[in-house]
Amino acid sequence: MTLAEWTEAVQRNADAIMAGEKVKQLSALFDTPQHALQFIELAKKAGACRDLKIRCKAALLDEKGKKILSPKTRMPVIGWADWTPESHKSA
């Protein structure tokens, strides 16, 4: 494999990763909103990045703002939701 072929293969893999939409937790070290905001600021300064959002696991809501219930268990469906300071006020 030549250097040009290798560079092209690496670029294809990078493009495939950046095109993905799967949500993943960054790290347990950045599990508070303050640390996540600091990380996002540093990542944006460092170079190209995409889809940097603070998200949390929460009950999913439908278009009307009501919790989506599982038809089997009748419990709220839990998934990733965008975090906002208004949505998670501390006591």
Results as ranks from 00 to 15, higher is better:
residue 54 I to N: 02
residue 28 A to V: 11
residue 70 S to K: 04
residue 81 A to Q: 14
residue 71 P to F: 00
residue 23 V to W: 02
residue 21 E to V: 14
residue 88 H to R: 13
residue 43 A to I: 00
residue 8 E to V: 06
residue 70 S to M: 03
residue 30 F to E: 03
residue 47 G to P: 04
residue 24 K to V: 01
residue 38 Q to V: 07
residue 32 T to A: 08
residue 1 M to G: 10
residue 4 A to E: 10
residue 71 P to L: 04
residue 19 A to S: 07
residue 66 K to Q: 06
residue 17 I to E: 06
residue 20 G to T: 02
residue 12 R to D: 06
residue 43 A to E: 06
residue 91 A to N: 14
residue 50 R to F: 14
residue 4 A to V: 14
residue 58 A to R: 07
residue 55 R to Q: 14
residue 75 M to Q: 10
residue 52 L to M: 02
residue 31 D to A: 04
residue 20 G to S: 04
residue 16 A to Y: 11
residue 16 A to R: 02
residue 58 A to H: 10
residue 54 I to G: 01
residue 59 A to M: 05
residue 59 A to G: 06
residue 58 A to S: 13
residue 49 C to Q: 06
residue 28 A to T: 12
residue 41 E to D: 13
residue 72 K to S: 14
residue 17 I to D: 02
residue 9 A to C: 06
residue 45 K to R: 10
residue 74 R to F: 05
residue 22 K to I: 07
residue 37 L to E: 12
residue 45 K to I: 01
residue 79 G to P: 00
residue 64 K to D: 09
residue 44 K to I: 01
residue 16 A to D: 09
residue 36 A to T: 07
residue 66 K to V: 00
residue 37 L to Y: 08
residue 36 A to L: 13
residue 40 I to Q: 08
residue 58 A to P: 04
residue 34 Q to S: 11
residue 76 P to W: 12
residue 19 A to W: 08
residue 83 W to D: 03
residue 38 Q to F: 10
residue 49 C to N: 08
residue 38 Q to R: 11
residue 90 S to F: 15
residue 63 E to R: 15
residue 28 A to L: 11
residue 41 E to R: 02
residue 1 M to L: 13
residue 64 K to R: 14
residue 12 R to F: 01
residue 57 K to C: 13
residue 83 W to F: 09
residue 81 A to K: 00
residue 24 K to C: 09
residue 18 M to G: 09
residue 18 M to R: 14
residue 37 L to N: 12
residue 74 R to W: 07
residue 6 W to Q: 15
residue 67 K to D: 09
residue 40 I to A: 07
residue 71 P to G: 00
residue 74 R to P: 03
residue 68 I to S: 07
residue 30 F to H: 14
residue 15 D to L: 01
residue 67 K to I: 08
residue 6 W to Y: 15
residue 32 T to L: 12
residue 36 A to K: 10
residue 54 I to R: 10
residue 46 A to S: 08
residue 29 L to C: 03
residue 77 V to H: 12
residue 86 E to V: 00
residue 2 T to M: 03
residue 34 Q to W: 11
residue 81 A to N: 09
residue 4 A to P: 10
residue 27 S to C: 03
